[in-house]
């Protein structure tokens, strides 16, 4: 029977890409957090790949004409009229890749975030766990 697969082997390790996906998250242009309120978190999830595997990603924004490849970064905005930022992080919870944007609550006071309305698009590719036995 003719073999159906071509296989080439090397002793060097590499990262095997097993899945790729895209997810979008829209952040509103206005967030009000009342006095004593909790952080406000927006998130979008993407289910691809295998758990605890490596991840390579980049994020684009409808507000900017370039992408960032960092797994966590900041979004410039205004907080109560002053320059501030929201925190953005990418994590993996089981099979779910989460893109989260967090607006921190004020210290016991009401606070308002503005000027950050945009849509973030996460492009992610995952790899077979290189520590798989």
């Amino acid at each position: 029977m003719r073999p159906s697969r071509f296989i080439l082997n090397s002793d060097y390790a590499t990262l095997k890409n097993d899945a790729e996906g895209v997810v979008q998250l829209t952040v509103p242009g206005l967030v009000n957090i009342p006095a004593g309120g909790a952080n406000v978190v927006y998130k979008a999830t993407l289910q691809i790949g295998s758990p605890s595997a490596g991840l390579r990603s980049y994020v684009t924004s409808s507000k900017y004409n370039y992408a960032l490849s960092s797994p966590s970064f900041f979004l410039a905005c205004k907080q109560d009229g002053y320059d501030s930022s929201a925190s953005v992080d990418i994590s993996r919870n089981g099979l779910l890749i989460e893109l989260r944007v967090t607006f921190a609550a004020g210290y016991g006071q009401a606070t308002q975030y503005t000027d950050m309305g945009q849509t973030l698009t996460l492009h992610a590719e995952t790899f077979v766990d290189p520590f798989q036995v």
Binding site: F6, I7, L8, S10, T14, K16, Q132
Partner: peptide, 16 residues
């Protein structure tokens, strides 16, 4: 030491 890290070039995976 880990089988998952070996380079086995096959059509099952996409290699960056």
């Amino acid at each position: 030491g880990w089988s998952g890290n070996k380079l086995v070039l096959s059509t099952d995976h996409d290699y960056p």
